[in-house]
Amino acid sequence: MKPITWFNLFVATILTAAVLCPPEAQAQLPGRFYWRTLTDSDAVPLIFNSISGNTNPFSPDHMIVSTANIDANVAIASYAHTFSLFDRSAAALVLVPMGNVSGDVTVAGKSLHQATNGYGDPMVEFNMNIIGPSAQDNLAKAMRYEPGFSVDVLVDLALPIGQYNSNQALNLGQNRWYGRLGAPINVQIGPWVPGRRTTLEFLPAVWIFGKNNDLVGQTLKTDPMFQLDAHLTRDFTEHFWGSIDGQYYSHGKNTINGVSADGPSIKAYGFTLGYQINENINLTAGYKSTLNNDNSPGNLRMDSFMFTLVFGWNKLVEGARRLSGAN
């Protein structure tokens, strides 16, 4: 293997940031994201992540380079529509990542800087409740809704049409198909009353990746990755809530041109605060970090800030409000 190729490969492995836009970035959603609501509702979630660390936060292998500094700003604009399928709550989403990623790494006294920006691979998502209350297809059911113990199925598929430059290690698109199978689980603890709601939420999922046949001239294969997100959420008031968040990733092997490397496991912890500004707008802000953030060699360091703004509406609710206002 030519040195430059090796170096490119190495950098590519580190900075795939981009490459990778974003399975993890897209996976990082706040607690309560998969709560069920009235069917035939629409929502536009806007998710902003600012991530930095000594590894590429988006890379499937998360190889640690103590001298690396990676910064990524990723926004995900989405559109979601809820509906009823076989009397179960269901939702379809389209997520479009965008943003910029830059990274510096020093290897053998040689520094490399790469940066990119644009759109990542858009993702379509379908989720549907399979255990729990039936669909909230009218206001009466919505009024009586309590999640109790509910389990959804979640299917994501990313379309490899995002920004990708095969001559550069750093890209926003992945140049391969990938997707996720998950099962959001919501456990209601105590009463389902605004101001007093408590939930324990889990998102176990498996990410599956296709091949990237042109990663700086190399072929990248990634074994499935296991994800487990956990949130303990609690209302503080009717409109203000918070959560303690935990995240665990167990990465599969990355193989580049037949050379394999085990991916690390990542454990991160954080918190989120959420506020319902009005009937249409929800805002959350959160922070998450790996536990040990010193610079000792081999120690993975990564932290992220996340902000989400979800604007939702339902034509029935909107119409009723117009009529009430008129009266």
């Binding site: 009218n138 206001l139 009466a140 059911k141 919505a142 009024m143 009586r144």
Partner: peptide
């Protein structure tokens, strides 16, 4: 009455 109104009074 709409379903919601009947549900809330019914409850």
């Amino acid at each position: 009455l709409a379903a919601q109104a009947r549900a809330i009074t019914g409850k």
